[in-house]
Amino acid sequence: MFSLVTFTPFQPTPGLAIWSLLIFLLFWYLMAKFAFKPIAQALAKRENYIQDAIDQAKKAREEMANMKSENEKLLAQAREERAKILQEAKDIKNQMITEAKDKAKEEASKIVSNAMNDIENQKKAAIAEVKNELGNIALSIAEKVIRKELKGNAEQESYVNTLVKEINLN
């Protein structure tokens, strides 16, 4: 039959009490000194190191981002500048072209007008010469005619001159 046995593991015994106190205190002291404290410190050190590394990486990333945005800004500025310069150059070019065109036109018109004047003068001179020549020709013709019919030159000659003058060359 089942008998109610004394539950010996739950009876405190003097030997075990003293030994376990001694062993546990010694265990506590040695583990604290040689294991737990060094490990805890090493872990804390490593954690700080990792945290630092993460912080630094974050900082570097932020710096990079900053630099990138700055670069972009600079690039945009440069682009703008370039566009501006190009525009200016274009304007100058256009201006120069128009100026040159105008000048050329002016010169051309000047040359044309000079040429016209020359032509007019030449024409006038030529007409005057032709008139003179014509007078002479007419005179000589008239002389020939008068010689045959008239005597006295002076009267006839003046008369011929008046006649020549009346010839209006257009």
Partner: peptide, 22 residues
Amino acid sequence: RSTLDGGILGGGITSFYDFSLT
């Protein structure tokens, strides 16, 4: 058996104490 409970937990007051390395 050598115990410290004074008979409360079934042990008893003994005439000896056992400090053995058990």
